[in-house]
Structure formats: C-alpha cells, structure tokens
Design a protein around this nucleic acid. Structure first.
Length: 352
DNA sequence: CATCCGTGGGC
DNA sequence: TGCCCAAGGAT
C-alpha cells in the first residue's frame, strides 16, 4: 500500500454521499441500517444477478413475505415458484433453509460475520455484506466489483482467481473502521456505474487520482482473468402432454440443474445430453419445434414433442400433476420450460 | 482449487 | 451473432 491508501475511503464515501444509487433495499448514506431481513434477501438475490433483474423479485417477495418468520412458514414449492426466472435455484432452497434457521432462533439474524457465515447460502461475501450493511460491523466485503476496483487501484496484474489473496489484502487495507457498510455499497456503486468492466469512466471517478491502472493508461486491462473453457452444446427432448385444458408437469430432483423446480417431463438431458433418453409414455409424438437455451456451462437445443393421444394411465403416479393451462404462469417454470410452453401453446414450431 | 449452477442485457 | 458479464455458494 502506498501513502495514499488512507485517503481512499474518505474520497469514496464523499462521492457516495453525493451520488449513491437509490435502491429499494438500501438506506440513504449515513442513515441507520435497514431491516436485516431486507438486506439479506437482497444480497442473496443479487448474487451473480443484476440490480435490474432483482428489483421486481425483491418487491414481490417482501410484499408476500414481509418478515423472515413469514418466509420461514412458506411452502417450499411456493418459494421455488416465486423464484422462477431468477436463476441459480440453489439460492432459493438455501434461502428458505436459512429463513427457517433464523426463525427457529426467534426471528433475529445473528449480527456477527462469523455467525452469519455458517447460515445456508451465506458465503464469505454475503456474510461480510450483511454484517457491514445491516449491522454496521467492519467487514471486508469483496465481490466482483471490489475485485475490479481494487485490481485497478493497485494495478494488480496477476490473473484471477490466483490474485484473490492479494486483492483481499488490499481491500482490507482500504476498508475504514466506520461506515463499513456505506463503504462496501460505495465500492459496488463505483464498480457498477464508473469503474465498469468495459470502458471505465475514469473522468468521473473519485479515485482516479490514486489509481495505478489509470496512471498506466489501460485500466480496462484489470483484473486479468484466466482463459475460459469452451461451452459444449447438448441436445434434449421435452414432452408436452395435454388433457382437458391442463398439462402434465413434474417436479425436478432437489439438487442439480433446475433442482426443485416444476418442469415439463424430459429425457434426462441435464445428465446425458444426447437427446436419446426415454419419453414418459410411448407416444406417438408430434414435433412442436425446438427451443434453444444457454446455460452457464453448456448450450441446449431442446426438441419439444407433443402427445395427442389418451393413454395417460401409463404416466408414473405421484411424480407429476395436471396443471391448468389458464394458470400456467403461476406454475413457476424456469425460463427453459417457459420457452417450451410458449412454443407448445403457439403451436407454430419450426417442425423439426 | 475446479466445477457446477441461470438468466438477461450490452456490445 | 456470439461472447462477456453481474452484489457467489456449495461441493
């Protein structure tokens, strides 16, 4: 750290006081901390997810479940359906598990980073963020924004993830004893609006003075990242079985891809990916077309087959339910199957 | 430490 | 259009 390290927090907090984003889960700069439930809920929703995507879900969750105790009392199926479309569904399973742990201890979140860290779904980042933002604790909050800002401030040229220890040491050095929550949120605002991954707006940056990457002329070069692996393509089939204005939906296994979510029956593409798994009944099947979808680590071409017969007795008992088409938007289908359902209802596939 | 786990937007 | 990216966690 150079001699200017102790000037970084004051400069950043001054900028935050003037320019903080107004967000539904956030208190104004310098104000008392907001409800820990809202801080925790927002932080979990914001894991790997944009502010714009979270806003609607945050409003819906807090309206439906105003307290952690109310959320703890919800059925898992309701929570999973409410989370549908937001992605990374293990977050929703851990969210409910965490709510139930907190409710069991009287409905109050623990106020220390160490105690928060052991709750389901709270890793190093989220435990530090909740401790700082909801409880005013000094905690070193390191997310992707902080990694980028710090890597640029100190021109840390080692590639991620190997550079993480050095980045943490640097973040620790600039984290103030007071207003650690505002500092963390200021770093994230800076990363989201000024010190962006591409085309950083250094002319507007309150830290451009001490920034080593700015001085070097290529701030966008930081942080250096390891090369990514190629993303394979898989093929699968899903099956639309309709009867009396209702469609047969199943519940996916509790772990793995789209775990715990309602879904169309499929051929097991998440495990095999060759499109050759068995259908839930013999058929005959008509093609309704293909849905393309991109997941984090593979792409998927999902061929949708429609059953027009009446041999429903062969459907495996107890693993599915007839869902009324009129209420399909309440089923909580993840995006892949929402696309497939749209295709089936439109009835205008590409015919393959 | 590497891998798995969604989604939508920006360029 | 394809790729990168976003307030990461669990295993």
């Amino acid at each position: 750290m150079d001699a200017s390290s102790d000037q970084i927090a004051p400069a950043l907090l001054g900028w935050y006081d003037a320019c903080a984003r107004v967000l539904p889960w956030r208190a104004p700069p310098g104000a008392p901390p907001p409800d820990p439930y809202r801080v925790w809920l927002s932080e979990v929703m914001l894991q790997q997810t944009t502010v714009a995507a979270v806003k609607g879900y945050f409003a819906a969750f807090t309206r439906r479940w105003p307290t952690v105790t109310a959320l703890a009392a919800a059925d898992e199926a309701e929570v999973m359906a409410a989370w549908a479309g937001l992605g990374y569904y293990a977050r929703a399973r851990n969210l409910l598990a965490c709510a139930r742990e907190v409710a069991a201890r009287g409905g109050a979140f623990p106020d220390s980073e160490a105690e928060l860290r052991v709750l389901p779904g709270l890793g190093a980042y989220t435990a530090a963020a909740v401790a700082a933002i909801a409880f005013g604790r000094r905690a070193v909050v390191v997310d992707a924004n902080v990694e980028r800002v710090v890597a640029r401030l100190f021109a840390i040229g080692d590639a991620l993830p190997g550079a993480r220890p050095a980045i943490r040491v640097a973040a620790e050095a600039i984290t103030p004893d007071r207003r650690a929550g505002d500092f963390a949120q200021a770093m994230m605002d800076l990363g989201a609006t000024i010190c962006t991954a591409r085309a950083p707006r250094c002319l507007l940056c309150p830290l451009s003075g001490p920034c080593a990457a700015r001085a070097g002329g290529e701030p966008e070069r930081y942080p250096v990242k390891a090369a990514k692996k190629p993303r394979p393509q898989r093929v699968g089939r899903a099956f639309w079985i309709e009867r009396d204005e209702a469609v047969w939906l199943v519940r996916r296994a509790g772990r793995g891809m789209l775990g715990g979510m309602r879904a169309l029956p499929d051929d097991g593409w998440s495990a095999r990916g060759d499109g050759a798994g068995p259908p839930p009944l013999a058929g005959p099947w008509d093609s309704a077309g293909t849905v393309t979808h991109g997941f984090t680590h593979f792409g998927l071409d999902l061929h949708l087959s429609v059953y027009l017969g009446r041999d429903w007795a062969s459907l495996p008992a107890g693993v599915g339910e007839w869902w009324p088409l009129a209420r399909l938007d309440e089923a909580g289908l993840p995006t892949l199957f929402a696309k497939a359902a749209r295709l089936a209802l439109a009835g205008t596939g590409d015919g393959d």
